[in-house]
Design a protein around this nucleic acid. Sequence first.
DNA 1: CGATTTACACCTAGGTGGAAATGT
DNA 2: ACATTTCCACCTAGGTGTAAATCG
Lengths: 258, 258
Amino acid sequence: PTPSHPSAAFLGGPSEGSPCVPGLRWAGEGLGASGKNHRVCHASARLEMSSLWEEFNRLGTEMIVTKAGRLVPKGHGVCWGRGTPFPLLSPCRRMFPTFQVKLSGLDPLADYVLLMDFIPLDDKRYRYAFHSSSWLAAGRAEPAAPGRIHFHPDSPAKGAQWMRQIVSFDKLKLTNNLLDDNGHIILNSMHRYQPRFHVVFVDPRRDSERFAHQNFKSFSFPETQFMAVTAYQNHRITQLKIASNPFAKGFRDGDPEP
Amino acid sequence: PTPSHPSAAFLGGPSEGSPCVPGLRWAGEGLGASGKNHRVCHASARLEMSSLWEEFNRLGTEMIVTKAGRLVPKGHGVCWGRGTPFPLLSPCRRMFPTFQVKLSGLDPLADYVLLMDFIPLDDKRYRYAFHSSSWLAAGRAEPAAPGRIHFHPDSPAKGAQWMRQIVSFDKLKLTNNLLDDNGHIILNSMHRYQPRFHVVFVDPRRDSERFAHQNFKSFSFPETQFMAVTAYQNHRITQLKIASNPFAKGFRDGDPEP
DNA sequence: CGATTTACACCTAGGTGGAAATGT
DNA sequence: ACATTTCCACCTAGGTGTAAATCG
């Protein structure tokens, strides 16, 4: 009773790179057999907290999307009229678990930009059947908003900096607001998504556009796919979020050990 | 009854730069008449919240220095033995007001590093005379710890990025711990200091060390000088901190309007 | 009726000065 | 005496799921 996992062969495994031959040279820059610049072709990314991701994935991960989380500062009598479309404060929802990777194989002295995007896993819309505790396809997907990308805010930085510690995308926010003005990731509720992670070498050459296709490497971890929802559907997901997210500690009952 | 202001002519005014001639070229890089690289010689910095700084300065600004602010997370029964020299948590004290500047005159496409340091305003040690509500010199300065610098955490970044909005040094922390291990600024309590702000052009040339002296421009604003203390001495300073620092709202009595 | 929005209590995380205790 | 350290209540700032209200 988990959603059907589309074949999605185009996603490949966690790492899309194929083996490359560092010695080979072409057009003045080292190129691997994969046709990628050697600054990225050895890059590899290890997903952090993968056992937690897998635990969620076995239940069918859900991620909350909202228009704007906190409307009014606590204790302030500010009142947004019901007609006000979008209040001033921007805090939509983060992902939990947070997407975090440990990088290796970068050129320590080269500049890289790190970014994420989200691709629909299929062209279906879903609904949750409470009686059977399972997701059912419910028609074709809504028209997708133009796909946004989220740059890691430390970008650009040297390979050495990125590899020094775990790279965390905890500033990434999800929204279902098609008119979002804050650069957040726009997703359709009740649709399934695959997060994707990209390492982009910042090519210092004058005509670097010509090599753009060689200068990035993408990673997607199947255990991080999820259903976007405006409210949790599967109660087991709710309970696992409460048990594992520190900010939800207020909803824990007993304390079966940290 | 304010502390004697040493002549400190070497500090110059808010901006140390002298006029430069952009057209002049030398060694392949534009140099102003000041001998500075043209990437920095037009740089200018406007101190934000200067009226608040001046209000503090008229009373004789004091800044708290501590070894480690918060030792034990609230509600956790962790107990640091009295003999433990330095606990795990690092939060020393910020400055208030926060040092913030609006930059202009940078090359939008060039890389810059922004940083701050603190220089002793004299070689005296002070004590506060409560009966006269004034600071008195009390002997020669303690030996100064090796002067540390604080890089703005967004460094390096393009001139365009730095000029886009106000640059805030709100991550800068002050400590009186001579053995500080967290890269905080080390100051002697009961000594006077002048904050200094530096704009450094990141020179891409191979032998950029040779031009290091041309590639920076420094600013010091006399209204930001202060006395480092472990506890506030002048009650008027305490009251102005409480009135103007949002984190001290808990100590306000009436509310004479925000 | 299912999906979404709103308002809220309850957390994490950490920046304040006060007051009491401790040095020196 | 004076300077410093410690512990604390009280804030700011913002990330949680809940339950009720609302939307369509």
